[in-house]
């Protein structure tokens, strides 16, 4: 039963360890009192802009329109411990601080190019928490985006029950 899943999970962990700081996967039996949104007003708007910077609207919808920020909120509440949530919230504040230091305005008021610049800088920051924040935000944005109904049905060809299996077909088929 599901040993393949365990083995796969192990392989993913081996890879995952390289890119995520320890605290991000160190969640365990922490305290959890049901789902309560981590964010209040402005923070949610801020995260919406951050996920949009990571995966922007092009000829297809971006992460903001697909409400990936709400998915992240839910994931943080249910699947991560308080320490991870604290670091994440601290990261949101750092984004604001960096925006006002670099461009003299709030992140929300930055141009798309500036927004992207702030996130890129965070991902390379010397501060371990800032860097961890950027990586976790990216991780969850990708997870939420790629598993969204829009992407799976319109872009990556999800089928509920393929009914057949071919070991080799051209990639564009």
């Amino acid at each position: 039963m599901n040993r393949r899943q365990i083995v796969k999970g192990m392989a993913a962990t081996v890879g995952g360890m390289l890119v995520l700081p320890a605290w991000a996967s160190a969640w365990n039996s922490g305290s959890l009192q049901g789902f309560q949104s981590n964010f209040v007003g402005l923070e949610e708007a801020l995260l919406a802009e951050i996920v949009e910077a990571i995966i922007p609207e092009t000829d297809t919808p971006g992460a903001k329109k697909l409400e990936v920020h709400r998915f992240i909120d839910k994931m943080l509440a249910d699947c991560f411990d308080q320490k991870s949530r604290d670091i994440f919230n601290k990261g949101l504040k750092s984004v604001e601080t960096m925006a006002s230091k670099s461009y003299g305005k709030s992140y929300l008021a930055c141009t798309p190019k500036q927004k992207l610049e702030v996130i890129t800088t965070m991902s390379k920051a010397s501060d371990a928490d800032d860097q961890g924040f950027a990586r976790l935000a990216k991780n969850l944005t990708i997870r939420g985006y790629l598993s969204s109904e829009y992407v799976m049905t319109k872009l990556t060809g999800y089928e509920m029950a393929p009914g057949r299996y071919y070991g080799c077909v051209p990639v564009k088929a």
């Binding site: 039996s29 959890l32 249910d78 699947c79």
Partner: peptide, 27 residues
């Protein structure tokens, strides 16, 4: 469908506690 699972397959913390042996190494 995958998007109908609210945590997209990741194990919530409360489940990790209730199912501690199931989740100690796997998911």
């Amino acid at each position: 469908a995958p998007w109908e699972f609210e945590h997209r397959g990741k194990v919530p913390i409360n489940s990790a506690e209730e199912y501690w042996s199931n989740n100690r190494f796997g998911t």
